[in-house]
Design a protein around this nucleic acid. Structure first.
Lengths: 331, 331
DNA sequence: GAATCTTATGTAACCGGTACCATTAAGAAT
DNA sequence: ATTCTTAATGGTACCGGTTACATAAGATTC
């Protein structure tokens, strides 16, 4: 059942049926109603592929994130999908799993599939992926990364501010509470680097890098105990990711370290479980839902107004105080 | 840049270029190489829309789940996406957010978009969604739901067995440890009903229904304390969802209830955080990754072998014992 | 050397729509 | 009555590929 069949039944040309489908005003009312009835009776649905090919518009947006099982991205994706669906767009989703080649392949694939626009959370800003995206003629929005490159709109969380908030919180404590300050962060990623920059702008901590997972956090604890004697010196830990922070916490508790008595912890992300772990985490909250919402609205705006000026969004973060590092009156 | 341009440059017809693109053997080697070079030089990529329209095949699979921010679905989706991408298929994703109308709209939309097949985790088995899916001519696989309906392949976790495992665990305890047994479950969903069936087949508990979220679990605690005096009678709680179980746990701990001393808890799902909450949860493990992998492989198989017999998969579950209900020597 | 078979390539219809331009008929203006 | 508008519809090229069929050139057979 296609547009020709409908036209034949109605005794009109396919052009007229096409006009009815497009709600064109240039169709006599009686004709329109007759055709609409035929369309309904045969529950005919126009073929999107043919339509897309002809209109050069697919109403689909490609989305690429590093990992989808991660609840942070889950919240973002969920919101993106809601917004896109509201506007009758379709979401085509891929994940890079932190592998640059997969990311690059996903981008190429989406371009081949003629998506109308893309939302990408890139692994790195200096990469083949970014270069091919820059050359592409469709609108692209970078998620979770900021760049001056005028080819892209960006939506990020203000990680610099987040890092500073964490530092400010520690600085607000009596100095007896922070005889030693240690920061734990992961691999080279803009978000993490900015968090560290925001923090070190205020405080110079000892830094551990390449600690990426819950297990990494857990395994780091023996080192912290022997190298930093954190059970003897009042220590503050800034950990740039709540998941890792929970691993560290678990490790510390297993060694009978008192949190926050001996060691204070401050994490980053405020995922759902940050408030539900053994010692609820003081942390920096991001707004993944809001990021997703803005990203989706912005890419649709870019698609529908191609000449519009690109924008860079930086969403504010918020300090959430919980038991792992409560407030105290200053000195 | 399209196939005609390439043909013009090469001085051949578009049919020949098409043959080169399709790796047809009926092209002279010298011609093939010449055309391939031209394709590379102009980095021409065939238009997928046109190709799909003509071939009647899109290499895309529609996936619909109830919610994507949920880590359980996150793990499934991640695996589905990996498998599909490996086989050069694209994933088009929607979520129903537990709203039947959204689910129905998502299905219609995907059918309109000519996906080659669909993986759907339906809200209910008796619904417009299922009926439209049954009528559709493309292969459909139901996730997380079992039905005899021969129109669908199914991939579920063996929830009946899971419920029984939970009951068996409780029955293995000295009876002094289980003076009272209470089950807490959510809204009417096949997975949850089966878990309860599996459990009640062995033990008849008092049942609380419609407890769906962490907060619901938290709020249930006062009732449990007053109506069931669970701090006075040795109680076993079977909670059909770990997230809810964590809410209940939090509520109990706030009321100084000793877990597992006064109250034992057994959850369901074994999400990442089940082992990291205040009192790590004894729970029933499902294999979302495996479900995703099988679902994706199966739908691809169905797409590529349309005549193949449909299959119903039921994945085994496993009891994970943790502090919230440890083993004890039998009587 | 004619007949036959292969192999490589071209031609054109087709997938299912959209949209520009042409045509027609009816009503308005002259 | 004739010409001009205008509204409704039809005809058709096009989007960018695939593919069945036709054809020409070269290889094989007798």
């Amino acid at each position: 059942m296609n547009i020709n069949d409908i036209a034949a039944i109605a005794g009109v040309s396919k052009a007229t049926v096409s006009r009815v489908l497009a709600d064109s005003p240039n169709v006599r009312d009686s004709t329109r109603e007759r055709i609409q009835k035929i369309i309904r009776d045969n529950n005919f649905e126009p073929n999107f592929l043919a339509r897309s090919l002809s209109r050069r518009k697919t109403f689909s947006v490609g989305v690429i994130v590093e990992e989808m099982a991660n609840p942070f991205f889950g919240s973002i994706l969920s919101m993106i999908e809601n917004v896109l669906n509201d506007k009758h767009y379709t979401m085509s989703l891929s994940s890079s799993n932190w592998v640059k080649e997969k990311e690059f392949a996903a981008v190429r694939n989406m371009i081949r599939n003629s998506v109308d626009g893309m939302i990408v959370s890139p692994i790195a800003l200096k990469s083949e992926t970014i270069s091919i995206l820059g050359k592409s003629s469709i609108p692209v929005l970078l998620l979770n990364n900021y760049t001056d490159n005028p080819a892209f709109s960006c939506v990020t969380s203000d990680n610099l501010q987040g890092g500073s908030l964490a530092a400010d919180h520690l600085l607000s404590l009596p100095s007896s509470e922070r005889q030693q300050i240690i920061a734990v962060t992961g691999f080279k990623h803009q978000t993490l680097e900015e968090r560290m920059d925001g923090f070190t702008r205020r405080i110079k901590p000892e830094v551990y890098e390449e600690i990426n997972t819950y297990e990494d956090g857990l395994n780091l604890v023996p080192t912290l105990l022997t190298r930093n004697s954190i059970n003897e010196i009042k220590t503050c830990l800034f950990i740039t990711n709540d998941n890792v922070a929970m691993g560290v916490q678990e490790g510390l508790l297993r060694h009978q370290v008192n949190i926050p008595g001996d060691v204070r912890m401050i994490g980053y992300d405020n995922i759902d479980f940050s408030g539900r772990c053994r010692v609820p985490l003081t942390t920096i909250e991001q707004s993944p839902g809001e990021m997703g919402r803005i990203a989706a609205m912005e890419i649709l705006d870019m698609i529908e107004n191609p000449e519009k000026e690109l924008r860079k969004f930086r969403l504010p973060t918020r300090l959430i105080i919980r038991e792992s590092s409560p407030v105290m009156p200053g000195e």
